[in-house]
Write a protein that binds this DNA or RNA. Structure first.
Lengths: 207, 207
DNA sequence: GTCTATAGGGGGATAGAC
DNA sequence: GTCTATCCCCCTATAGAC
């Protein structure tokens, strides 16, 4: 029973919320179904009653977590009313807010992907999500107009995601180096919302 | 029994090599001592004979893995014969080579750190390793001489590490987006050795 | 739907022969 | 030191009462 619990939710919802929390934090292998039951404030047997097995419950959580990412990406990458520069601001701002609220998700996804890539990628066709987008077309146009110096959009995207995501994944290490408490660290992340677009511009835009 | 095996090594060494490989790839929770025994080509009982328990063996591997990182950092950060710009090149080049050979280590370390930060940080005092260094002094001097625009060395270091490490951790995802095979992906990493110092310069150095 | 009790199996660890 | 056989606990999953 924890702060994540919604007392008036259905049992099924409570179990899923708890599973989300625990799986995200500890990963599949380190999670015990007992942890989930306790977190949900229900009996262990109910977990199997509703979801049949640990693996089936995990798969549901994984799909839903991937879907959140997918939809966030699709909506930002396909916004027709924003310029390329504005999209970079949107991506930085939205993902930093998102990961601040769900700090375990990046490690969870990339860690579980290590073992089950092909499984997962069947369900989420990630290439068209990035390549068949307004973002991609705008990027190529900027390259053709000599506004951007890097021809390969993957390099651009890799660096953008690196600057956004890595500071969250490396937090346990970076925080110790800097002697920062959680509030200071979050403030640093908030400041990165403004700085990342500036940095990206100095890296890739012709001066 | 695998390509990592050294046939003429002592049994103890073979078990440690195998444990390294399997723990790095799957993490503590997902690793079975039987996996390690099989990888080492020895009997399961020998693992306990030499190392008493799975946890004790894991702790040894973890300490050794952290030590590799520590020594690499210390030696680069304290080189008196290299300028700050050269250090950035060295860090990018050495770490990209290192992680190319040991691609599981970043995920392994950061993932296991999530649960056991304080445990580990007692053993590796990471702050002085970065702060009491030639690198730090050179950075501060560059700030005072108005060569560098960002006053906080942590921001500089965070971005540098992000650009180096994240592409490895995000490989399962990024590789799918780009439809790249392993050879292409490694080539991309090699090119980043040259590009990262250039990018860092455009982000932080006064033009 | 929700509980208690328990079956069933996997995995860490050990006993004991060689 | 190295093996086979086995113990035993913990964890997933189910049976069955309510």
């Amino acid at each position: 029973m924890k702060e994540t619990e919604s007392p008036d939710a259905t049992t099924e919802q409570k179990i899923k919320e708890a599973a989300r929390t625990v799986f995200h934090k500890k990963g599949f292998a380190a999670t015990r179904t007992r942890d989930i039951a306790e977190e949900a404030g229900i009996n262990l047997a109910l977990l199997n009653y509703y979801f049949r097995s640990k693996k089936k419950l995990f798969d549901i959580i994984m799909i839903e977590t991937l879907d959140i990412f997918k939809h966030t990406m699709i909506s930002i990458f396909n916004d027709k009313n924003s310029s390329l520069e504005q999209k970079v601001e949107l991506i930085a701002s939205n993902y930093i807010d998102f990961i601040t609220n769900e700090p375990d998700i990046p490690m969870f996804l990339l860690n579980e992907m290590r073992s089950n890539i092909d499984d997962l990628m069947e369900k989420i066709p990630v290439k068209p999500i990035v390549m068949d987008t307004v973002f991609y077309n705008q990027y190529m146009e900027a390259v053709n107009n000599d506004i951007i110096t890097e021809m390969n959009p993957m390099i651009f995207l890799t660096n953008l995601l690196s600057l956004i995501v890595f500071p969250f994944m490396g937090k346990p290490l970076l925080q110790k180096i800097d002697d920062a408490d959680d509030a200071q660290y979050e403030k640093m992340m908030q400041e990165r919302k403004k700085m990342i677009p500036v940095w990206i511009k100095s890296m890739f835009y012709r001066p």
